[in-house]
Amino acid sequence: MNPAQAPYHFQTALQPLLLQAFTQLANAVFITDTAGRIEWANHAFCALSGYEFDELLGRTPSLLSSGSEGPVFYAELWQKVLSGRVWHGQVIDKRKDGTLYAADETITPLRNEDGAISHFVAVQQDITQQLALDNTTRSKGRLEIWSRYPNRAAFLDLLSAAMSRASRSTAHTAVVRIALDGHPDLHGQLSVTGNTLLCAAADRLSNTVRQSDTLAHVGDAEFAILATGIDNRDIALALANKLQAALAAPFVVRGNRIVLQASIGIAMSPEDGAEAGALLCNADHALYQATLQGTNRCQFFERSFAHGPGGQLVSARTAQ
């Protein structure tokens, strides 16, 4: 099916001209329903993603997920657009052939005649080469973090092994998810200030956890801790309090005092998940709930989280 023949109708006398303009626009454009299912895409988006239109139709943008952004990132994105506001930011997506591309993306809610949100229009501009040229300050801090700490995939492997060992004893395993905030340079394309903050925060977290714990960098300004031998929630909460206290002291970057906030979500095995992927996902849900409560909050996972609005928002982009 040709994208120009897709069943999307502009409520205007200029429908043919507008459809032609959207179809031939140099920027990649796709339109989804409120559940995130793709209903229309132009030629530029098909070329950028590597997918034919028939392969995109009815799928969600999770098809493009590279794993570079964590569930909290997408939960906040969906929360914003579902409230009727425009979202703008940078994403790292994955083409059909597995290669990655960076896009400057804007998502705009569309309202019907009754004022209810009916669709979302996403416009992407490929900035892969631009970021490659402007990669010096961005990469130094990120590469330093990536080289010193496991990423999300490696963390899952370590978590799976730890849970397997724990299953042969009475020991519990906890996943502590941490999202940093308090300075705009921590998000998106990192500046020198953002790089310095991220590295300094990682050092404080690393120096705070026990030698038996594992710290991983799992998102832009997000970390995860694998804590073994956690017998109960009180011990896990004490660890979370220590982490927040460690981050509470101001950071001095280029002569400026910067105070960061740390939202924390905790999931414990076996009660919150008997498999590594489920336990990490539930820690993500707990973290998302903590961010909804304000700054410097800590939240344990509850079963209701995975089935409420937060769970739906996360899965709309990250579920495969």
Rank of each mutant, 00 (worst) to 15 (best):
Q5K: 00
Y8N: 01
L14E: 15
L17S: 04
L19C: 10
Q20I: 02
Q20A: 13
Q24G: 05
A26W: 06
N27M: 03
T32D: 01
T32M: 02
T34W: 10
A35D: 15
A35K: 15
W40I: 04
H43G: 05
G50L: 07
G50W: 08
E52V: 07
E55C: 08
E55Y: 10
G58K: 05
R59K: 15
R59C: 10
S62L: 05
G70C: 09
W78R: 14
Q79G: 14
V81I: 15
S83D: 10
S83C: 02
V86T: 13
V86A: 00
W87N: 02
Q90T: 12
V91L: 14
V91G: 00
K94C: 11
Y101T: 10
E105M: 14
E105I: 13
T106P: 01
I107P: 01
R111Q: 09
E113I: 07
A116E: 12
I117Q: 01
A122R: 03
Q124I: 00
Q129E: 15
Q130L: 14
T136G: 12
T137W: 08
S139W: 04
G141M: 07
A153I: 08
D157Q: 15
L159F: 03
A162R: 15
T170A: 13
A171T: 03
V175Q: 14
I178C: 13
D181V: 05
D181G: 15
P184V: 03
H187P: 02
V192C: 08
T193N: 03
G194P: 02
N195P: 02
L197H: 09
A200F: 00
A201W: 06
A202K: 11
R204H: 05
R204F: 00
L205C: 06
R210W: 04
S212V: 08
S212P: 03
T214A: 07
A216L: 08
G219F: 01
G219H: 05
D220E: 12
D220R: 09
I230W: 05
N232W: 03
D234E: 15
A236D: 08
A236V: 05
K242I: 00
A245Q: 13
A246G: 12
A248F: 08
A249S: 12
V252A: 09
V252G: 00
V253S: 07
V259C: 14
L260H: 10
A262P: 07
I264V: 14
I264N: 04
I266V: 12
S269T: 07
D272Q: 07
D272A: 12
D272N: 15
A276W: 08
A276V: 04
G277V: 09
A283G: 14
D284P: 11
D284C: 14
H285R: 11
A286M: 04
A286Q: 09
Y288M: 07
Q293V: 02
G294D: 01
C298A: 06
F300C: 02
R303P: 08
A306I: 07
H307W: 06
G308F: 00
G308S: 13
G308N: 15
G308C: 12
P309D: 11
P309H: 06
G310P: 06
V314P: 03
R317E: 11
A319Q: 14
